[in-house]
Simulated assay, not measured.
Amino acid sequence: MQYMEFGRTGHRSSRVLFGAAALWDVSQKEADNALGLLLDHGVNHIDTARSYGDAELRVGPWMKTHRSDFFLASKTGARTKAEALEELKQSLTRLKTDHLDLWQLHFLVDSDEWETAMGEGGALEAVTEAKKQGLVRYAGVTGHGIDAPKAHLKSLGVYDFDSVLFPYNYPMLQQPSYKKDVQALLDLCKQRNVAAQTIKSLARGEWGTKEKVYTTWYDALGEEKAIQMAVHYVLSHEQLFLNSSGDLSLLGHILKAADRDIQAPDELAMQALVEKEGMKPLFV
């Protein structure tokens, strides 16, 4: 496993972060098996959210003996100060901890929601209040969709967030406007030492009429070589962290790929993968 400074936080993070959305609807036994994988592969960063079903409840028991082993991040989808602080209280209780290392404003892309969150009495005020109280050490912003990088640039213009999170995979980056927005965001993140987290590394496209074989809401790559190429495509960019996918059956394959010597797949190889797997941009 490779490690890298997580922005300006002082945490030397594993390049692969555990995306705890994979614990949305699993038993504690299944969750504990996942913990074993994380420890075996040296993952030291967990990313969850109050809205991820039972995920926080499954991570909570781990914190009794492993709190110091992990940089613990969660998210709030609330847009007002009062609602966000209530969600933070719930997250801390569910996670059985007295503080989060990173608290993120989740899916902050919609312009109206952005105005509410960043305005008077908004969720951003909850972030500053929580930091004052020592409930949160660092703050981030996350987003899905084609407009996420652009929205993060706007957010960074208002508040000096410590991290951002956005979709990043080969099909998405073939869209010129998206690629341009991502590059602008990464340039600013590098300038300010903001951690850049990525999601949807294995996204093959929407399920459509296909039978769902994973718990991810999107169709995901499943063949080991394909997963390795997709993981290496992300991790070969020295600035990026990769959040593991929302299905526990994919976790071992992702960690195995990350444990190997990271080699950037060439353009022809990625084009061949897209054609073979029928990959399409998840967001357009």
Rank of each mutant, 00 (worst) to 15 (best):
E83S: 15
Q239N: 10
W24S: 08
L39C: 02
D101W: 09
D261H: 10
G145P: 06
D261A: 12
E113I: 01
I199P: 03
L173Y: 05
V234A: 00
P149T: 06
R192Q: 14
D47L: 07
T97C: 03
V164N: 03
L92T: 05
D101E: 12
L202M: 03
D147P: 07
A49Y: 07
A257L: 10
K64A: 13
E83I: 05
L72M: 13
H45R: 05
V127L: 15
K96Q: 15
G19K: 09
A226C: 08
R8A: 15
A123Y: 03
A139L: 04
Y138P: 07
A184V: 08
V16G: 01
D266N: 15
Y3C: 04
S249H: 09
L273R: 11
G122A: 07
A257D: 04
A258E: 02
A117G: 02
P281V: 07
V231S: 04
K210Y: 14
Q239K: 13
A195D: 06
E275C: 09
G10K: 12
V26I: 13
A269R: 12
Q174N: 14
Q197V: 11
L100C: 07
E56R: 12
K29F: 06
L235V: 07
S155Q: 06
Q197G: 00
R58D: 08
T9S: 11
P265L: 05
G278F: 02
V127H: 02
S91Y: 01
A148K: 06
Q2N: 12
L221F: 11
D259V: 05
W217A: 00
H152I: 08
A269L: 12
A226F: 03
K132Q: 14
Y214S: 01
L135S: 11
Q228V: 05
L282P: 04
Q197N: 11
F107C: 13
R8T: 14
H99Q: 14
P167S: 10
P281D: 02
L135R: 13
A34F: 02
H45D: 01
F71K: 07
D101G: 07
T215H: 14
Y170Q: 10
K132D: 12
S177G: 10
G77Y: 14
L39D: 01
F161Y: 11
K89D: 15
K75F: 09
S74M: 05
V59I: 15
W217H: 02
Q183W: 01
V213L: 01
V182T: 01
G53C: 01
M63Y: 01
L102F: 13
V284F: 03
E224G: 02
K256Q: 13
A257F: 02
K29T: 09
V141C: 12
A195P: 09
L57D: 12
N193I: 11
D112H: 04
T93W: 06
T216F: 09
L23Y: 07
R50P: 03
L242R: 05
I199S: 00
A130C: 08
Q191T: 14
H232M: 11
E129T: 10
L235W: 10
G121R: 08
D110Q: 14
V43P: 08
R260F: 10
D247C: 02
D181K: 05
Y214V: 00
D259M: 08
